[in-house]
Amino acid sequence: MTVTIYDVAREAGVSMATVSRVVNNNPNVKPQTRKKVFEAIERLGYRPNAVARGLASKKTTTVGVVIPDISNSIFAEVARGIEDIANMYHYNIILCNADKKKEKEIRVINTLLEKQVDGLLFMGGAVTDEHVQAFKTANVPIVLCATTDEQGTIPSVDIDHEAAAFDAVNALIQKGHRAIAMISGTLQDPANGYARFQGYKRALEQAGIAYDESLVRVGNYRYESGIEAMKYFLELKDTPTAVFSATDEMAIGAIHAIQDSGAKVPDDISVISVDNSRMASMVRPQLSTVAQPMYDIGAVSMRLLTKLMKKENVDDPKVVLPHEYISRQSVQPV
């Protein structure tokens, strides 16, 4: 049978109110009494009912996190940052994978809200009207993590994706490259897709390099799509001397496609990307990339959410963290 607070009170010889104060870390309990209650809890194997406590306090100390792809190490790093700060502020995390599918994202958001979470962190692609409508029905704070909404009305933590892509492509241009291809993410994705594509185009324009549509292929962020895009570039009459990939995973696919063709990176083709996942330093040659501070994005997002949940003062609900170019072995001058 389930052990109740009444059983603990009887075992310890105290009132149920005293047990409640001990369980909720109320300081107004004598040390000797607190010790007796904890001993009774241990003997009986009592576990406080989180649901009941949540109903009483109208707080569940639980935060819902929607993650687009749990198998992607980039999002795993964000989740680690979220969890570390959540633990620091005594919040539990419910992590839900949405597979980068809008319908599933909306369903997961509504499910988490039905579970009475105290706040919600959303990592995903495009924040559509359907997402915004789901957020509006929530009576809890929402923070966008590693993404933003077009209107800029929802609190968020991210980097400047256009500037990050610009810096990556500009690094190639500074090495003398002019035939620069891009493996893009879907242009419906405002951050990893469209913004990085715009950064690519701006870098070319600023350097006086004409934009060539045939040098752009759209991938799905996966390793395999990087391979397919690179195979297409290798079959062009004028093979590009460098490739900019919107993500590390697609860039690694491109590197392997180049190597499988008998060409070399960076001797024949240079490759650069944005992310700086662990894979970037594991591939050979090591991948030059623009680093997103993924752990910090998760940690700062969770800290912002705690402030909103506690109704603390927030100076700026739109946080843009800095990025950094990491030079490795996959880029060399023409």
Rank of each mutant, 00 (worst) to 15 (best):
R278W: 12
Y223W: 09
I258E: 06
P293T: 01
I209Y: 10
T247M: 02
Y200P: 10
M282C: 05
R222C: 01
D268Q: 05
E235R: 14
V274S: 02
S225G: 02
R278K: 14
D267Q: 15
P266R: 11
T239W: 00
K201F: 09
Y232R: 06
E213A: 14
K201R: 15
A251Q: 07
A251G: 05
I209V: 13
M230W: 02
G208L: 07
L287F: 09
Q292K: 13
V243P: 03
D267H: 13
H256Y: 04
E228F: 08
A203P: 04
R278I: 11
E249M: 15
A291Q: 15
R217I: 05
R222V: 01
A280I: 00
K201D: 06
A246L: 02
K231T: 14
A280K: 06
I272V: 15
S261Q: 06
V283K: 03
I272G: 09
Q259M: 11
V283C: 10
I269W: 02
P266K: 12
Y221L: 06
P266G: 13
Q198H: 11
I227M: 15
M250R: 11
Y200M: 12
Q206L: 10
T247W: 00
V271F: 09
T241Y: 07
G262S: 11
A242Y: 09
D212W: 03
N220V: 00
S273Q: 04
Y221E: 03
S214C: 01
S277H: 02
E224L: 08
E249S: 13
S273R: 00
S225H: 04
T289Q: 12
L236N: 10
P240N: 10
D268H: 13
R217N: 08
A246Q: 03
D296A: 13
E235S: 15
D267T: 03
G219V: 04
D248C: 07
R278V: 12
Y223A: 03
D248E: 09
L204S: 01
A254R: 08
N220F: 00
R278C: 06
D212R: 14
G262P: 04
A207T: 10
A291S: 15
D212S: 07
R278P: 03
Q198R: 14
L287R: 09
R284H: 13
D268W: 09
V271P: 07
S214W: 02
Y232K: 08
K237R: 14
D260P: 00
R217Y: 04
M294C: 11
S270Y: 07
V274Q: 02
R217K: 15
S245L: 08
S270W: 04
A291T: 05
A251E: 06
Q206M: 08
K231I: 09
D260I: 00
R222S: 13
S245T: 10
E228G: 00
A207C: 12
G199N: 10
V283T: 12
K264H: 14
V274H: 03
P240K: 09
E228A: 12
S273A: 15
Q206W: 05
S270K: 04
K264T: 09
D267W: 02
E249F: 08
